[in-house]
Computed example of a mutant assay.
Amino acid sequence: MPHARAADGAALHYEVHGAGRPLVLLSGQANDLHWWDAVRDDFAAEFATVVLDYRGTGGSDRPDTDTYSTPGFARDVLAVLDHAGIERAHVYGTSMGGRVAQWIAADHPERVDRLVLGCTSPGAPHGVERGPDIRRALAQPDAAAARRVLLELMYTPDWLAVHQGPFHTLGDPTMPGHARGRHLRASARHDAWDALPRIVAPTLVVHGTDDTFNPAANAPLIAGRVPGARLHLVPGARHAYFEEFAKVATPPVLEFLTG
């Protein structure tokens, strides 16, 4: 299992699957590389896919230090690319991974070929936040009920009726409490509004139309802020559009990345 070293010495676990031009796949908040398990092979058929465990998750170190932020995660991704000998890659980030990807593309344009930002946000100051009713439902003390709420934010009722799991988009269950809290704060403090116009990589913004976990209204905001960005909406999809709606969501991403 390869590990890169971050600037502060933290070990960062990553994997490379497939062959071809490199494509970095970035997971959501408090999730490890298994976020991509259901669709990774579809991308690995075309690309050398790089997936990683954020600090605090999976096989990476879990320091209880003030080193968790979306720009910090971006620097960790660059450390992984350096260790893997990859100078330049496509980057596809979903949810918090899309926030991390924004910083990689804005601050290190020489490292990014094409950029895909999925179900993500420019950050609270200018983005559209989820409603207080959703926040309360996710924070309720009944863990089973909160998990059910999260499942229904990720997937449609029709999908949940026929899929029993395991679900790899609900957070890494092995994370310690301090790491989970630091991931939450890192995502909540994200603000790349002023950085988005600096992105020069060809960019595709993808979002499910029925996503209320990270409201779909954020997609046109980002697409209007990144020069020349394209917008692709997935009708009827919720937050985990890339998994449930893979048959309609993956082809346009692949077409964009290979175009």
Rank of each mutant, 00 (worst) to 15 (best):
M1E: 13
P2F: 08
H3Q: 07
A4G: 07
A6D: 00
A6W: 08
A6C: 07
A7Q: 10
A7V: 11
L12P: 04
E15Y: 07
V16S: 12
V16W: 15
H17K: 11
G18H: 00
G20I: 02
V24L: 08
L26K: 10
L26D: 09
S27T: 14
Q29W: 15
L33G: 09
H34A: 06
W36M: 01
V39L: 13
R40W: 10
R40K: 15
F43E: 07
A45H: 02
F47Y: 05
A48V: 11
T49N: 03
V50G: 00
T57Y: 08
G58Q: 04
G58C: 10
R62I: 08
T65M: 14
D66C: 13
T70S: 06
P71D: 01
P71E: 03
G72Q: 05
V77H: 05
A79H: 02
A79P: 05
A79F: 03
V80L: 01
V80G: 00
L81K: 05
A84T: 07
G85N: 09
G85L: 13
E87R: 15
A89P: 04
A89N: 08
V91W: 08
V91Y: 04
T94E: 11
T94V: 07
G97N: 06
V100S: 00
R111Y: 09
V112D: 06
R114E: 00
L117K: 03
G118A: 02
G118V: 00
C119D: 15
S121A: 06
A124R: 01
H126A: 11
G127T: 07
P132H: 05
D133I: 05
R136S: 06
A144K: 08
R148G: 09
R148M: 15
M154R: 15
T156M: 04
W159E: 10
L160K: 02
V162G: 14
H163K: 03
F167V: 04
F167T: 05
H168P: 09
L170V: 06
T174S: 12
A179E: 14
G181K: 13
R182L: 12
R185A: 12
R185Q: 12
R185F: 06
R185T: 07
R185E: 14
A186R: 00
A188P: 13
A192H: 00
D194A: 11
A195I: 13
L196Y: 07
L196P: 12
P197C: 00
T203G: 00
T203C: 03
V205W: 01
G208T: 03
T209Q: 08
D211P: 08
T212I: 10
F213K: 15
N214P: 01
N214Y: 14
A216R: 00
A219Y: 05
A219V: 04
G224Q: 01
V226Q: 03
L231K: 12
L231W: 02
L233R: 03
L233I: 10
V234R: 01
P235E: 02
A237V: 10
Y241F: 15
F242G: 04
E244I: 11
E244G: 04
A246F: 13
K247A: 14
V248N: 06
P251R: 05
P252Q: 13
V253D: 02
E255L: 15
L257S: 13
T258K: 12
G259Y: 00
